[in-house]
């Protein structure tokens, strides 16, 4: 069974977590520094989250999170199922294997993507905590 029953639930969990990360003093500045617009395209359920670290963000945020469609043109586009995305934020996806298996696709300059990996490492611990905080402990894996 899929982790998320619909796009709204995915936006609440992953989208909400991204919005927390936008305020995080560890991850936020490094992602801001990338000056990238990254779109995550998810399937099952079909959904889309865009991280905008290029345009000015709201006060207190290092970058902007947009759930759903947007007119922004991404520098990097990552495509995967929502389940893979959920497992990824637990640190349970081997990126090389996922790419080899076709479970993930990445479009855009690979160095820009790789540069972000160390920056998002703290997320693997913070995502489960966030899910517990919003009452979604049933999503823990």
């Amino acid at each position: 069974m899929a982790f998320f029953k619909d796009a709204a639930e995915l936006y609440e969990c992953i989208g909400g977590f991204f919005k927390e990360a936008a305020k995080d003093p560890d991850m936020g500045p490094k992602i801001r520094e990338s000056k990238l617009i990254i779109t995550f395209e998810y399937s099952a359920p079909d959904s889309r989250i865009t991280v905008d670290a290029k345009n000015p963000a709201a006060p207190g945020d290092f970058f902007t999170i947009i759930t759903g469609p947007t007119d922004l043109t991404p520098d990097v586009r990552m495509s995967m199922s929502a389940d893979i995305a959920h497992r990824f934020w637990f640190g349970k996806v081997n990126l090389v294997q996922a790419l080899a298996k076709g479970e993930m696709k990445a479009q855009g300059p690979i160095p820009s993507i790789l540069k972000l990996l160390p920056a998002i490492k703290p997320a693997y611990e913070l995502y489960p905590e966030y899910l517990k905080k919003i009452g979604k402990a049933d999503k823990l894996i």
Partner: peptide, 9 residues
């Protein structure tokens, strides 16, 4: 446009 992984299938 083809920088990335899994784009040429």
């Amino acid at each position: 446009d083809y920088q990335g992984f899994g784009l040429i299938n």
